[in-house]
Simulated scan of single mutants.
Amino acid sequence: MAFYTIDSLPKRETAPGRLNPVLQGQYMTAVTMRPTPAAKVPVHSHAEETIGVVIEGYVDLEIDGEAKRVSKGEFYHIPPGTPHSANGGEGLVVEFFGPPRADLTQS
């Protein structure tokens, strides 16, 4: 299959208690998220590089100790192994991971 909607994607647990639509490719993973003002993702890191873009609204991020509100139309980059967290937001965010996130693979 080559075309998808957010609603047609399988949902995976991308953080404790958070199910998000995920598209797994051969060389990358895409995750769509709808953050809420109360949403918290604790500091963590992973081997995959991450590039994110805010499609609607905003997300409050901390990447390697630097905090910033990332708003509609803005991108962010998280190098592999870099500590990062999210502390609320609203709207729609899409993140791309490379190589693919093995922890989000369908079982």
Rank of each mutant, 00 (worst) to 15 (best):
G81K: 09
I63P: 01
E13F: 09
T82W: 05
P21A: 04
P83K: 04
Q24L: 08
L19W: 06
S45R: 10
E66M: 12
D60I: 14
E74L: 04
E66Y: 11
N20M: 07
F97C: 02
R18L: 12
E48S: 07
F97R: 00
T36F: 09
P79M: 10
T82M: 10
G89N: 02
P80W: 06
G57V: 06
T5V: 03
F97W: 04
M28S: 13
A30G: 13
Y58H: 13
V31H: 01
S8F: 07
L61F: 02
A86K: 02
E95L: 01
G52E: 00
V70P: 00
M33C: 10
K40T: 13
V94H: 04
R101S: 01
P35H: 02
V93T: 05
P42F: 12
T32G: 11
A38K: 13
A86V: 02
A47P: 09
G25W: 06
F97K: 01
Y27M: 14
E62V: 00
V41G: 03
F3M: 15
G88C: 05
H46G: 06
G65C: 05
P35N: 05
Y76E: 06
Q26I: 11
T36C: 08
P16I: 04
H77C: 10
P16K: 08
T82E: 05
R18I: 12
S8N: 06
G52S: 08
A2V: 14
P35G: 04
T105L: 15
T105N: 15
H77R: 09
H46R: 08
D7E: 15
G65M: 04
S8D: 13
K72A: 15
L19D: 08
Y27G: 13
A38L: 06
L19N: 08
G98Q: 14
D7I: 04
L104V: 00
H44E: 07
G98D: 08
V70W: 00
V70N: 00
T14W: 02
G89T: 03
T36I: 11
R101E: 00
P99W: 05
P16L: 07
G81I: 09
E13G: 09
A15D: 05
K11L: 14
P99L: 09
A15S: 11
L19C: 07
Y58P: 02
G98C: 13
F3Y: 15
H77L: 13
N87P: 00
P35V: 00
G52N: 03
A67V: 10
A47K: 14
T14K: 01
G17V: 02
D64K: 12
H44C: 08
G73T: 06
L61R: 01
Y58S: 10
G88T: 02
H44M: 08
Y4V: 11
G88P: 01
G25N: 09
S8I: 04
P80D: 12
I6K: 14
Q106S: 12
Q24I: 04
A47C: 10
